[in-house]
């Protein structure tokens, strides 16, 4: 009985942590490259969920004029891919319109962070203005199937979320370790000045980073909406904050840190909720994290680095 409930919570925590991990990636990669905390990133997750909503609705033929003849799995796959592409466009647009001009002028990082906060608010309120405050139901593309093995309940969606997150982790680690663009991302975080001297256009590496981060947030958005199919303009705010905390917890700038931090935050939240009244969940969870960070401020994998001038 105890073991069963433990395993059940473990599985729930893995799924819950997957969302944090996928979003935390974007925070951590952008920080690694630009030393910028991209506070608009949580809202990119929201934008991803909404773009997914429109693509899926369009494909399912809920708007007049389209032909609903695709299989649900194919609809889901197309939705994921198109959403990732379009959301990357939004992420890159923010970098081009808001962050790059500041970088060109040599503005202090503080101003860029404030700009990022404003971009997030613009996305939230832009959504509110365009689409209204009413919640939207994400269409069900994959029919949920529930399984029960040894007293543990899970759905196909839950398994898919967890597997996808693990696959993303392997993919990104490979990109960053093995490809020249990935090496350039690591190089920038160590010594920005020397990167152009290798014949590498720094802006291209930065755009690539935003593409990776935003598309993973979009993936998280679609997966999240598949598991919890209610969308509202502020859905990215709190999840974004928490994913940022997960990134810091894992050691910001480290990809594996984003994953471990995301899953750890998922575990703490789910297990606190299992043991205590759920209204105390965030209070207890974040008190634990506060103590953890005061003991190890650089997070699990982070190393303190001297500020470079």
């Amino acid at each position: 009985m105890f073991l069963e409930s433990f395993l059940q919570n473990l599985l729930n925590a893995l799924q819950w942590g997957s969302f944090y991990a996928l979003i935390a990636l974007g925070y951590t990669m952008v920080y690694g490259v630009l030393l910028l905390i991209n506070f608009a990133h949580g809202d990119i997750f929201m934008v991803g969920a909404y773009i997914g909503f429109f693509i899926a609705t369009l494909l399912l033929g809920q708007y007049a004029g389209s032909s609903p003849s695709l299989s649900p799995v194919l609809v889901f796959a197309i939705t994921v891919v198109v959403t990732m592409v379009l959301t990357s466009g939004v992420g890159v647009a923010i970098e081009r319109i808001a962050y790059r001009p500041l970088r060109r002028k040599g503005a202090s990082r503080l101003y860029v962070v404030i700009t990022a906060l404003m971009c997030g608010l613009i996305l939230e309120n832009g959504n509110l203005a365009l689409l209204g405050a009413s919640r939207r139901n994400f269409p069900e593309m994959l029919s949920k199937t529930a399984y029960n093995i040894g007293g543990i309940n899970f759905t196909n969606v839950k398994i898919m979320v967890i597997m996808t997150t693990i696959a993303v982790f392997i993919l990104l680690e490979t990109i960053v370790r093995k490809t020249r663009l990935g090496m350039a991302m690591r190089a920038i975080s160590y010594d920005r000045m020397a990167v152009p001297l290798m014949g590498i256009p720094v802006d291209t590496v930065i755009v690539f980073t935003f593409i990776l981060g935003s598309s993973m947030a979009a993936l998280a958005g679609v997966l999240f909406a598949t598991a919890y199919p209610v969308l509202e303009p502020y859905m990215g705010a709190l999840v974004g904050w928490k994913a940022f905390i997960a990134a810091v917890l894992g050691g910001i700038g480290e990809i594996r840190g984003a994953f471990v931090g995301g899953f750890l935050l998922g575990f703490i939240e789910i297990f606190v909720a299992a043991l205590f009244p759920s209204t105390l969940r965030d209070l207890i969870a974040f008190s634990i994290l506060l103590v953890f960070l005061s003991i190890k401020p650089t997070g699990i994998f982070g190393v303190s680095r001297a500020t470079k001038i």
């Binding site: 190089a187 160590y190 000045m193 014949g199 590498i200």
Partner: peptide
């Protein structure tokens, strides 16, 4: 035209081979 900068500016978080490989980025 290439520059070997003052203070070397080696990427300390990359291996020797990765440093060399990175320099072939545009080739």
């Amino acid at each position: 035209i290439g520059l070997v900068p003052e203070g070397r500016h080696i990427f300390g978080n990359l291996t020797v081979f990765e440093n060399l490989k990175l320099a072939t980025f545009a080739r």
